[in-house]
Amino acid sequence: MGISTTYNEQELILALKKRDEQAYKYLYDNYSGALYSIIKQIVDDAELASDVLQEVFINIWRKIESYDARKGRLFTWMLNIARNASIDTLRSKSYQNSQKNQELPDNVYSDTTRHTTQLNVDNIGLKKVLEKLKTEHRVLVELAYFKGFTHEEIAEIEGIPLGTVKTRIRNALLQLREFLQ
């Protein structure tokens, strides 16, 4: 971008904690795309995803004091804020109502029509990598990561023991790690 200031991670965190506007511009320019991508994969609606992204950056600005570098990298912290905000949106009443309204005409046909509307979102980022996993693994990671269900809830939904849910998710994550590298 126009301003050529660059920061290393410590400098950036320091500037962010001082509420330095330049630092927030830098943060936005460098990370908004990565966060927007993950938000879009969860809320599945470009316009809503933009709202969530804005909310996420404002939350980063508001909560930067609570970021603790000993617990992990700044991006990990931001990614978790983005994921949580997306899942909150997914669970909000207004979102669920809007989904219901959209789905009504589709239900006249078969379930496959719903799959085709989701396809374009399935093809980006992490979801694309997920396709490489075995179905039994993929479904669980999707429920846990993209829908925000707890392991207990997943055990109930899928009708499998909690222990199995835990080991399958752990194994799936270990495989994902290989794919990410």
């Binding site: 511009k25 936005y28 795309g33 990565a34 927007y36 990614l79 980022g125 992490l126 990410l180």
Partner: peptide, 22 residues
């Protein structure tokens, strides 16, 4: 590696979000 992957798979958000955020 998560960060690298996420950056490599970035999707540009609409310009209006940046304006509203700032």
């Amino acid at each position: 590696s998560v960060e690298k992957f996420a950056l490599a798979n970035a999707v540009k958000p609409p310009e209006s979000v940046k304006v509203r955020f700032l």
